[in-house]
Design a binder for these strands. Structure first.
Length: 625
RNA sequence: GGAGGCGUGGUGUAGUCUGGCCUAACAUAUCUGACUGUCGAUCAGAAGAUCGCGGGUUCGAAUCCCGUCGCCUCCGCCA
């Protein structure tokens, strides 16, 4: 029996039914008659016989076309969609391919149906090894046996043809991993009595926080919905509603500038529980992480995770999301060097600055003068004026500032950062925040350079004891460090009006290998305390009543003590997958300018559409592409 | 809002610093032909690029200058 579709560019299934996955065939399947459907991954013609690697989601298997089918199959373009009927057979003696899970077998085709001929793909649909720079021939250096690996297609091109990019095994693996991860989350929380409840996407804009994405309201011209930056208020209302244990895998929207770990729309695991203290949420989250790592990677995590005070994190690591896979702690040398001959250091305290430094193990030999100049430019990005380095070598110290310092002071430089022979000391004198940021960054930079950041270690840490408020440089007043619904420590309540910056928050951030995975807090369940927090933030009474009146009102109708956490799905997935950008674990991500290269969003809309919404554009800065 | 990197056949790169040996090189993909055991097939051949776009300097620009667009990284921002 032969299909009638030979020669046509596309056909329907014609009653054929797929009955197994290409990538799952093994020697034990030999003799089976199978019907496979998938894509032509690769084709090898040998005149009388042709091979095609038939790929579906599960992997690929070699299909042998001989006789009449061989000639016809030779014309199948890569990425064309085909259905194959045939018999699974053990490969002839010596022909097995040990590199392939299906390498012991092949499918001898008896019939083939072209379901859709594919144009030549504009990008590669297979994984490529990074290419050695420079084509081999030019310098004549590549040996004959070496092949040049191709470079990976540029990301812009991959995003433009994302549906082809996602066919690559690496991307399919990422999608599968993310699915398994989210599944593990739902299983874990379901087993502990959590209900997944949906909350509105069309909601109201609230002040503070990030810029909102706005949606014009047709029925109320001139008014707007906002897309949620998080379901924060609604999940608190669910606690008032007696849901007690809520979670949601939910999209959030923030109109801010993007980074490798930030997209304008991102997904959170949003959790809220009633009748809990921080320790309860922390314990639940640790269990959740352990469950994810076990289910997805088969790795057993050590719980509980270590805790680190916010102040200690910033002082020792220069950030509130420290990468603890390596040491290189930051030390303070301000007092020890006060009055020393190098004035930048000696007079730092008088200027209200601090002198801090760290030791890079083995760095004396690794970092050249050029590297050190580069590091100097790095710290300058954070506002530090310069960088002082000292290479502690067997023959003595080598440093541009050693001539200003006594031997004892040089020894202080070495001793306080904990540098040994062969280590490199790096020092910055600057205001405390600047010094922390600069050295924190330097620490990561140096670790990257030494290869300390790509180890497959999972260093979770809770950062706790945050202040409730931080100075807001724009307004000169206070801003919420976490968010304005976070509860203060009870024993600090009296400080709300007198010394607000000293008030500690019942908040906690979860950090993994330098990535902030998420954060949460116990919330204010008393209207009185919540209003005092708003007041401390400098919000006018009319304003917070207008924006948050409905929440305050809800707190008066029997709101239980409650708290929760929000965890970044994209970041967790990226870390699990070993990817450096969350774009690699998002099916259709946006560029750093928040554009979708595949669909062309954002785009123009018609004037009639605008008129219906009561909108008029002021001027046309952007022309349609 | 700011800083830096990148943009060259379909794709990935070299060439740009130091303008003319560039009539733009290499790899891969594509097309044609050969081949019954390949699996990154191989062999032979072919086609394919006004060097992101717009100006300018110059006898001459991929290369220098100005502007602009796009992608990436970072600072600010992201409660």
């Amino acid at each position: 029996m032969r299909s009638e579709t030979r020669g046509a560019a596309a056909a329907g299934l014609g009653g054929w039914k797929r009955d197994c996955w290409a990538g799952e065939l093994r020697a034990a399947d030999a003799g089976r008659e199978v019907t496979l459907m998938g894509w032509v991954s690769r084709r090898r013609e040998h005149g009388g016989v042709s091979f095609i690697d038939l790929r579906d989601r599960s992997g690929l298997v070699q299909v042998v076309l001989s006789g009449e089918l061989a000639a016809w199959g030779a014309g199948l373009s890569p990425e064309s969609v085909v259905a194959v009927r045939g018999r699974v057979a053990l490969r002839p003696e010596g022909m097995a391919n040990p590199e392939l899970p299906t390498g012991e077998v092949e499918v001898a085709a008896s019939d083939l149906r072209l379901l859709n001929r594919a144009k030549t793909p504009p990008i590669y649909t297979r994984d490529l090894a990074p290419r050695q720079h420079g084509a081999g021939g030019e310098k004549g250096s590549a040996s004959a046996g070496e092949r040049d690996a191709e470079g990976e297609t540029g990301e812009a091109m991959r995003l433009r043809y994302r549906y082809l990019d996602l066919r690559r095994p690496r991307m399919q693996a990422n999608l599968a991993l993310r699915h398994r991860m989210v599944k593990a989350v739902r299983d874990y929380l379901d087993a502990r009595g959590f209900w997944e409840v949906e909350t509105p996407f069309l909601t109201r804009s609230t002040p503070e926080g990030a810029r909102d994405y706005l949606v014009p309201a047709r029925n109320a011209p001139g008014k707007f919905y906002a897309l949620p930056q998080s379901p924060q208020i609604f999940k608190q209302l669910l606690m008032v509603a007696g849901v007690e244990r809520y979670f949601q895998v939910v999209r959030c929207f923030r109109d801010e500038d993007l980074r490798a770990d930030r997209q304008p729309e991102f997904t959170q695991i949003d959790i809220e529980m009633s009748f809990v203290e921080p320790a309860d949420v922390v314990r639940l989250t640790e269990g959740l992480m352990a469950h994810i790592w076990r289910e997805v990677l088969g790795v057993d995590l050590q719980t509980p995770f270590p805790r680190l005070d916010f102040a200690e994190a910033v002082a020792s690591y220069g950030t509130d999301k420290p990468d603890l896979r390596f040491g290189m702690r930051i030390a303070d040398l301000t007092a020890a060097l006060e009055g020393c001959g190098f004035r930048v250091f000696g007079e730092a305290a008088r200027r209200g600055e601090v002198v801090r430094g760290l030791a890079v193990p083995g760095g004396a030999a690794v970092f050249s003068r050029k590297d050190l100049d580069l590091l100097t430019r790095e710290v300058q990005k954070f506002g530090a004026k310069g960088l002082v380095w000292a290479a502690f070598e067997p023959s003595g110290v080598r440093s541009p500032v050693s001539k200003f310092l006594t031997g004892e002071e040089v020894d202080t430089l070495r001793r306080l950062v904990g540098a040994g022979e062969g280590d490199l000391g790096l020092y910055v004198a600057a205001p405390p925040d600047t010094a922390a940021a600069a050295l924190g960054h330097l620490r990561l930079h140096a670790a990257e350079r030494l290869g300390l950041r790509d180890t497959a270690e999972w260093c979770f840490v809770w950062v706790v004891n945050y202040p409730l408020f931080e100075p807001d440089e724009e307004t000169g007043g206070l801003g919420a460090k976490h968010h304005p619904f976070t509860a203060p420590f009870e024993e600090d309540l009296g400080l709300l009006e007198t010394a607000p910056l000293k008030v500690r928050a019942k908040a906690y951030d979860l950090v993994l290998n330098g990535w902030e995975l998420g954060g949460g807090s116990v919330r204010n369940h008393s209207r009185e305390v919540q209003e005092r927090v708003f007041e401390a933030l400098g919000l006018a009474r009319e304003e917070y009543l207008e924006k948050f009146g409905f929440l305050l009102e809800a707190l008066e109708y029997g709101a239980p003590p409650h708290g929760g956490i929000a965890l970044g799905v994209d970041r967790i997935a990226a870390l699990l997958a070993g990817e450096e950008s969350i774009r690699e674990v998002i099916a259709f991500p946006k560029t750093t300018r928040a554009a979708c290269l595949l669909s062309g969003a954002p785009s123009d809309v018609g004037t009639d559409q605008l008129a219906e919404l009561g909108l008029r554009t002021r001027d046309r800065t952007f022309e349609p592409v």
